[in-house]
Nucleic acid binder design. Structure first.
Lengths: 206, 206, 206, 206
DNA sequence: TATGAATGAGGATTCATTCAT
DNA sequence: GATGAATGAATCCTCATTCAT
């Protein structure tokens, strides 16, 4: 009757180890940066031997790529669900910001690594991750598009949508630089302040 | 009668060499990151020998610190002048954003290195740079404060000022991630879209 | 009642698998060298798991030793039969060269590994292989001895026999370095040119 | 009155160090093979620190390439001089073999590394070395051509020249495998036996 | 001022091998 | 017979830094 079967422990154990590896690596990379994080650090923190970890990833870069792919895919998936929930443009936008920040608090390290270590992954894995990232940008830009009125020239409107979307990402991604668990949790105020700023500006109701 | 003496240029030459060193280093670090940039890279790009450069800086970290200190101090200085020029709160804010973006285009590499390699400098040099940074934050926060109405509780207001200031920095600093010389120059539109968003939100006059 | 049972193939299967392992390993080692060939390579090429192969050999060195022992023993055995077939000294020599080259084309990889990776096997297995090798040398030296006239001092004659035998091995073993299946097959011309050179020198009948 | 000036010691010292590095490396690689020779071995044997050696070569492969290039070039140069000295075809051939074996005794380690570690160098350096090698082959083949009579079809003659040249290289290169300083020095007998075999075959005058 | 030469410390990665299952 | 998971040891190489000149 349990949700998870009680038989297939072996495979689960292996999965769990990979999980732990990725989590610990993300934490270290978030704190010290990708370059400053050594594979040995990850081993020390997880209890793995240096060579033992290479069973789970092909190399340091692959380790980072695995983190990024998982995290971005998961975030994109959540946000697509948010969009599918419908609502007025304003409501949708608010939900997106709220959930992004909620995801942020749930996976701070992983998301930080996704945001600031993008250029450390190259080649095909990069392309794959880049594709997900673009999808997320598109999704957000569409939400912003819903907020921007039809006035003025079409190219002006498109430029503004692009700019405002980039501003929103700027605000969201910069949170990593100043967020402190004690002071800034829960993120509701933060989310509302951000949404209000976008919807009505400083002088807004609030 | 020239501005710069035409006689004993030696000291000037030395200054020029340091200048070149810092410029090249900033360019490399902006493109590849601090960790990925080797002192040898800087030597290759400047024509200096590896050992020769150590006359100009104490070590790799000092090289970065020199760039950061100069650049931040220069930016802060400019912005203080902007504030001293006076004007309505809205005008002041607009001037600050515009000049920040202007400075950005004039010193992109240096400013990027200031923004994203802060944690690579430690100890006393870090503290010194941190102090300048804080002054800049304070200056900007005050400008934002001028925009935020007096309504509501005092702590709410202060929280909002802080948040909005951080949002503004987020928007500004994130520009590094997407700015393209060909497409996004000149930065007037960009500055105006940003200011308008802050002042009136999406639906704003614009 | 046949020599090999047609029922319990298991043992046969095991033999076959060892066979495949040795063949593939020989091919890899012939192409890349012993050091550059990893046990993993062999696994990948045979479909075996890394650990699974250790049922068939004690270690990498043993794998090589098995190949060498089998191959050398087989070659020696064939050549002893050739010698036992009798004939004039010239005929015997010609047959030996021909059959060596025939063996070469039938087991190129294995023989190459025998010829160029001798020093990679150590200890007792080495001694065993070395013994076979010496027998082969003796057998060939005797055939050469049949060609060398009795003139002159005995020590001179022995020296010449030794040298010429070594020259013959040099010619034969060096074939690995330049032989190309398309161009140099069949090996009859090659064998004849070699025998003729030894028997009569450049200016020979041919 | 000294041949070499007494002033330029500095540059000479550096040259000497590279010289020593190459010599020691060649000795180690000749004994243990390229793969089995570690850069650390070279350091230990020369007194250099591990990193210090990288001032003289770009990497392990480059170290090998430097040895091969120098040695092959030097050998080719010597043999070209031999050819230019003229003489009958037989005399030329004898001189070539003698000088090759003389070079062999003077640079045994280097030449061994040239002969048996060719495939360890790749890319452009390989091509360069390959070019020299081909020149040496051509030079030898021409000398052999002088010995082979005009009888028979042209293609047959060319085939024989090619084969005999390859046989000669086989004999010469295989010497590495059995040569022992005490027993086989001086190499005059060896050279004469080889030349006689080629010129007149086993039954030759000698 | 400037550099050639050198080094210590450290980092990613590979590989043969093992062992519980 | 076979394998998934793990490891110790070793290897190549890079880099910031120094010092005699």
């Amino acid at each position: 009757m349990g949700k998870s079967g009680d038989d297939t422990t072996p495979r689960t154990r292996t999965e769990d180890k990979l999980e732990k590896l990725l989590t610990v690596a993300a934490a270290l990379m978030a704190k010290q940066g990708y370059d400053q994080t050594t594979i040995r650090d990850v081993g020390r923190e997880t209890g793995f031997s240096l060579a033992g970890m290479y069973y789970y990833f092909k190399g340091k870069e692959d380790l980072l790529a695995q983190i990024q792919k998982r995290t971005f895919a998961s975030l994109l998936c959540e946000q697509e669900r948010v969009v599918n929930d419908g609502g007025s443009p304003e409501e949708q936008f608010r939900h997106l910001v709220r959930n992004h920040l909620s995801f942020f608090t749930r996976h701070m390290n992983e998301l930080k690594v996704c945001t600031f270590e993008l250029e450390s992954v190259k080649g095909e894995p990069y392309d794959e991750i880049e594709r997900i990232r673009r999808s997320y940008f598109k999704l957000t830009a569409d939400a912003v598009g819903g907020l921007v009125g039809q006035t003025g020239k079409k190219t002006d409107r498109e430029r503004r949508i692009r700019h405002i979307t980039l501003f929103v990402f700027g605000m969201l991604n910069w949170v990593f630089m100043w967020f402190e668990d004690d002071r800034d949790n829960p993120v509701d105020h933060l989310a509302d302040d951000m949404v209000d700023l976008v919807l009505t500006g400083v002088s807004g109701a609030s």
